[in-house]
Amino acid sequence: MELDKIEEKDLKMGKANQEVFSETMQALAETDRNIIAVTSDSRGSGKLVPFGQKYPNQIVEVGIAEQNLVGVASGLASAGKKVFAISPACFLSARALEQIKNDVCYSDNPVTLVGISSGVSYGALGTTHHSLHDYAVLRAINNITIVAPADNFETEQAVRLAAEHDKPIYMRFGKKAMPFLDENNKRFEFGKGRLVREGNDLAIIASGETVYPAWLAAKKLEDEHGIKTAVVSMHTIKPLDVKLLEDLASNERPIITVEEHMVNGGLGEACASHLFQKGFRNPFKIVGIPDEYTVTGSQVEIFNHYGISKEGLYEIGKKLLKI
């Protein structure tokens, strides 16, 4: 089953979020010479070739040297520049973790770290190129906002907000074209989840590119069983929108979390920890990549294998609802 094709006629197809990131950067740089892109031999994969052609004095290439990338970005930010440090998410959040912790977060430099080709976007390149740890390691570091936009609207808004933000941010994007999930809900704010489908029987809380299969599963549950499922794009993993989370849990409905990340240390565990400590006891299921050697395949094949799909989430929803 191909989940990278739009299955619902009422969802408009957009672009890959990485493309929207690049276009928004160009729009910002047109009127702000302080916008700087720093890349680690990734202007091509980051869709930044047009940016570099239009604004050659506002892009810095450090080569395949992620630790230097973060150090240079931090220095520029400390001098008043609005810096976006772009590199594949798997390498940025692993090779340069010490620099992220010390040069960016501890030193309070307002760098926006941009992890491209995130999650399992690299597909068959395998585990070395998967970023299934980034939420977990960065959640453990003080003074950083973690953002995973779900669609083109959220991506543009996130990049524009990041350019105005005065604190460290980590933002991750995938390679696949995404639909616009709800053109009626045009509210975006860091730390505030976005409700893209309403319902009181079940809640699916997802991040990034997993929001779309969650939306499809919710539609299937309604079409086939009349189940009304709330779907939330919890685009900000940290700080978590705990008010929205508690509101969703307040009627004791089952909750499913979905993420393109290891089940350890990510969105699901953040939600479960908060709810449990607040005394909620809703039926709860974390869907993500389990703690095992990840299967090899395309992003769609990996999603399908681990139930991050319309059919997989539909079946989990039925099981939690006992239907």
Rank of each mutant, 00 (worst) to 15 (best):
G14W: 01
V159M: 07
A158W: 07
P88V: 12
G268S: 05
K82V: 10
Y212A: 01
V231P: 04
E301T: 07
A136K: 04
H165G: 01
E292D: 13
Q53T: 15
S233A: 12
T24G: 00
I36H: 03
A37M: 14
A203M: 04
R172C: 08
E156R: 12
A203H: 02
P239W: 11
T145S: 07
T257W: 01
H261E: 03
D134C: 13
L313R: 05
K318Q: 09
I256V: 03
Q58D: 02
M25Q: 01
S22N: 06
P213Q: 04
G52L: 08
E189G: 06
C271S: 04
L181D: 02
L221K: 10
V70S: 06
E164D: 12
T155W: 04
I237K: 02
D10K: 06
E98R: 05
R281Y: 03
G312I: 06
Q99R: 10
R253Q: 13
R43A: 14
I36D: 05
I237P: 06
G297Y: 06
G199I: 08
E19Y: 12
Q99T: 11
A29I: 10
R160Q: 07
V242G: 11
S207P: 06
G126N: 05
G44D: 13
H225W: 11
L69D: 01
H261C: 03
I255F: 13
Q277S: 15
E66I: 12
D182S: 12
L244I: 10
I205H: 05
G126R: 04
G191P: 02
M234G: 07
E222L: 09
N185A: 04
F276Q: 14
G63F: 11
S78H: 12
E224Y: 06
V287M: 14
E189F: 08
V60W: 09
E269A: 02
G174T: 12
Y122F: 15
L202R: 02
K9Q: 15
A136R: 00
A272V: 02
A163C: 11
R187I: 15
S74Y: 01
I64Q: 12
L138I: 05
S87Y: 00
Y135G: 01
L267I: 08
E7V: 14
D247M: 09
Q157L: 02
S45K: 11
Q58L: 07
T31I: 14
K278P: 08
E8D: 15
Q157R: 13
S309L: 02
E164L: 14
A203S: 11
F188G: 11
H274R: 10
E189M: 13
E98W: 12
E183F: 14
K310G: 10
I116C: 00
S117G: 13
K238F: 01
K228E: 14
E23V: 03
E183D: 14
T257L: 01
A214L: 07
S87Q: 01
R253I: 09
A136L: 00
M1K: 15
V147Q: 01
I289K: 03
Y55G: 05
Q67G: 02
A124I: 14
H225K: 15
E315N: 11
V258H: 04
K238V: 06
N57S: 13
L69K: 09
A230V: 08
K310T: 10
K175A: 11
L92H: 03
